[in-house]
Design a protein around this nucleic acid. Structure first.
Lengths: 122, 122
DNA sequence: TAACAAATAGGAATCATTCCTGTTTATAAT
DNA sequence: ATTATAAACAGGAATGATTCCTATTTGTTA
């Protein structure tokens, strides 16, 4: 089995990497359509899932919508519940994974801290 | 405006409080139907949202499904990605809210830490 | 250049959740 | 108690993000 690099996947990755705005799949789809008119929703979803599985991008659960993050360095999120904006922040120490792993009998894959509240714009 | 206490809401709250299994709305709906045969899905969802808004129960985002937690004391969650189980754990200090609030210009409402991985059953 | 698995487009299907409407019910005022 | 009324309900339709399906296209290898 070999790995294929389609133009679609490359474009989707570029779009996610090119913004700090933590976009939704739909936002990414619309942005992609401006460049590749005939790209389909299914392709966007499939590639986002695949890129996330490969660890090339991150996923944030924002209510019932998934958002995507090109920043794969460990960091935390501020989520404004009024405007649904997501901001990056660093609260947790970078080695927390290992500390937690020592404390509990659980195969730790990812630690995510989200702070919900209301941002300065309100 | 006054506050109404329907039998349905009381039952739903009791069900959520009576388990540590972090059930989904659908699980709660089915459990409720065994006691109150004609209760509707809409009622379950409406009341879960309302109870969560009042701070009487907590909400956990598990993928694209919401789960509910009768434990409103501050705590963190272990989420097993193989069996979708949620376990309670205490990692963060209880006064983290206040510490974070001092650090950032953001009206902090809730801090949630979720550790994803694979539990002992696998 | 041929063979073939991977990826795609387009659209249908899924499924949790919300919304809508006519009816019932808990509370407050009389 | 009775009545008035807004809150809550049941039942079912609508929504919307995401996944799934199928015939077609496209990268990669031989």
């Amino acid at each position: 089995m070999y790995k294929r690099y389609s133009k679609q996947r490359t474009l989707i990755l570029e779009i996610v990497k090119s913004t700090h705005s933590h976009p939704s799949a739909d936002w990414i789809y619309n942005k992609a359509r401006k460049i590749m008119t005939k790209i389909s929703r299914g392709t966007v979803y499939r590639n986002l899932n695949q890129l996330a599985e490969n660890g090339e991008i991150n996923v944030i659960k924002d209510g019932d919508v998934m958002k995507y993050d090109g920043n794969i360095l460990r960091h935390d999120h501020l989520l404004c519940t009024k405007c649904d904006s997501v901001y990056d922040i660093n609260i947790l120490p970078k080695d927390l994974d290992k500390k937690v792993q020592r404390l509990i009998n659980f195969d730790v894959k990812q630690i995510s801290l989200t702070i919900e509240g209301i941002c300065q714009n309100h």
